[in-house]
């Protein structure tokens, strides 16, 4: 059953339909909450609040087809409220997921050392994203983690598409700076770039 149909049923008081929606989006919303809060219990509490609020305010959702975006909008608002509330407790934040990389390390078909390095790199990238200022962090998460388009992100955040584009561009500029060592390492080891490798020193001297 489509989101739209379930939302309409839920708007007519069908709690089971809403629970079906909750089941569908529980992990997505929890992941977003966890990425924003970096604290498992907070993320679970926030996820619960998000769905309870969604249930309360479901009547205000006019376009039933945009439930997923509307839910994310609610999620961001509630998660930011959680973050502001616990501003003095930031030392308890989790490192964003090394526990989730463990499964890979136990696979026998992969080289543990290489995979450990990759897992470490992924964690560093997530950490760098988590350290971005709030608006930039959110656009990066919505684009790269949730896979939303510029239009969808604009709808979630209630901003023009141009703002999404500029925020994403600035966020990446900041990340390029933070992750410069990793980009150089991985860039030098990946021959799959779209353009042939060129001598960077030569290029820079050409540019000067």
């Amino acid at each position: 059953m489509s989101d739209e149909e379930l939302v309409k049923r839920a708007q007519n008081g069908d709690v089971q339909a809403f629970m079906a929606l909750a089941e569908r989006y529980e992990t997505v919303i929890f992941r977003l909450a966890f990425a924003l809060l970096r604290h498992r219990e907070d993320a679970e509490d926030a996820t619960q609040d998000i769905f309870v609020h969604a249930f309360q305010r479901l009547q205000t959702l006019r376009d039933a087809g945009s439930f997923a975006l509307w839910l994310r909008r609610l999620a961001i608002r509630i998660c930011l409220r959680y973050r502001r509330r616990r501003i003095t407790e930031l030392e308890f934040v989790e490192p964003l997921g090394d526990e989730y990389e463990n499964e890979i390390l136990f696979r026998t078909d992969l080289d543990p050392e290489t995979e450990a390095e990759k897992a470490e790199l992924r964690m560093q990238v997530r950490k760098a994203i988590a350290e971005l200022p709030e608006p930039f962090q959110i656009v990066v998460l919505l684009y790269h983690m949730d896979g939303l388009s510029y239009d969808e992100i604009a709808q979630v955040l209630g901003v023009p598409v141009g703002t999404v584009r500029s925020r994403l561009s600035r966020a990446r500029a900041m990340l390029r700076e933070k992750l410069a060592p990793f980009i150089q390492q991985s860039g030098s080891s990946s021959p799959n770039a779209s353009f042939p490798e060129i001598n960077s020193k030569q290029v820079m001297s050409d540019a000067v």
Partner: peptide, 20 residues
């Protein structure tokens, strides 16, 4: 660099599926 960063960013969440 742009491509490489995008690859890193996409890859960073490829295995990031925390479950409640």
């Amino acid at each position: 660099e742009v491509q490489e960063l995008n690859r890193l960013l996409d890859d960073a969440f490829a295995n990031f599926h925390p479950l409640p």
